[in-house]
Design a protein around this nucleic acid. Structure first.
Lengths: 211, 211
DNA sequence: CAACGACGGTACGGTTGCGTCCCGACGCTC
DNA sequence: GAGCGTCGGGACGCAACCGTACCGTCGTTG
């Protein structure tokens, strides 16, 4: 029986090492050093660096985010943003996630693992949040969660993980409101592009308004 | 005098190598091999891997994107999205950019270089696109380009570089419309958050609707 | 209490990359 | 056409890491 405490130490070391040097430069030796463990201990548990990282990351990524129903799309978004920004603020997460996502562009196995993890959360978010909004009448039916996902997670992810501009908690409601508006527009059934320079209805404009 | 053709070959090799293995695993030897050049040729031009990459990337990143005035915020966004998606579709760019952005989280020099490059484009986008919209009356004055940037580039970047879902060109207008709506809401002057579970107006709701 | 089995740790050969040094080749100048 | 300066290429010593084989230890079982 493999000792749990050592397994745990390895897991932690992988996370820290991943954050410190990234997947590309992650070395088994460094993980072993940081964990205060021998390389053999690691090779006994996982066959390769890829397997090790995938296992550790999967274990962490599976943790679902709770997403309470606030009663409104905007409220749900605000809540989601708070949770996301909290999660992405973790120094480990904010370094590991972009790194692995970049690595996923090269390594199909990593891509698939992340895709699965992402898909899980996507369902938490997509199915829950969006379908809730549809049921409330805040979004029209037939809204495609996949297409809306970009609008939901894109801005916050960019802000925190890419631009890394400090994000005041007070900014989240504003962002939530903006995204809610975007979702309204994006999920409208196809409408002809009002060509030309006519002033635009920046709000959801035509149909599909609630209340 | 250093031979230009060799310098060019090195630059190309760096880009390809960067895309293939990422910054973390980029090795001078591999660059030299791919460029069909000796290591000395590289060390004569740059002192280290970091300097090499920064120089090559800076050279590429400086190229500004043209951004014609279409007459409307939505049109400008659509145009911008087309340009961005075109640029991000390049296999090299779509692998190098996320990789370097992830690396920037660890390496301050890379962060600063990218920040500069990003800031340049940010001004192209922010000052041009947003101020144009303000002048047209499509956005209220005092809109903070920095805060709006997340809404503009976040969704498309997420879609192409992170989720890597195929993006139909026909989807861009929809996304542009959605983002335009988001910008309208986000740039509204502060308004009290309607607290509580009262049904929320997911659109811009109260005032400030144009047209 | 003895023997077994599974564990973690150390040591090893092989590989890869770093950064440098030296050499032959090429072009330019007088 | 001879000499000089600069270039690119190959080789070297050094360090890190990979994956494995072997060794001592500990807990368990009969």
């Amino acid at each position: 029986m493999l000792r749990d405490d050592i397994t745990t130490a390895i897991r932690g070391a992988v996370m820290h090492e991943l954050a410190a040097v990234g997947y590309g430069r992650l070395s088994i030796e460094a993980v072993a050093r940081r964990a205060g463990v021998s390389k053999t201990a690691i090779y006994r548990r996982w066959r390769s660096k890829l397997e090790l990282v995938l296992a550790v990351v999967s274990k962490v990524a599976v943790q679902r985010l709770p997403l309470p129903d606030t009663g409104t799309l905007r409220g749900d978004l605000e809540m989601l943003f708070m949770i996301m920004s909290h999660a992405l603020r973790h120094p480990l997460a904010s370094q590991i996630i972009p790194d692995l996502l970049a690595e996923a562009a090269r390594n199909p196995e990593i891509a698939q693992t992340l895709q699965s993890a992402l898909q899980a959360n996507q369902h938490t978010i997509g199915v829950l949040l969006i379908e809730r909004a549809v049921e409330r009448g805040e979004l029209p039916e037939g809204a495609d969660p996949g297409a809306l996902m970009d609008l939901i997670v894109g801005p916050l992810y960019w802000r925190i993980a890419i631009a890394r501009t400090p994000l005041d908690a007070a900014d989240l409601p504003r962002m939530a409101a903006a995204v809610a508006a975007a979702l309204g527009v994006a999920s409208e059934p196809h409408r002809p592009v009002d060509s030309g320079p006519a002033p635009i209805d920046t709000t959801t404009g035509s149909g599909s308004n609630r209340s």
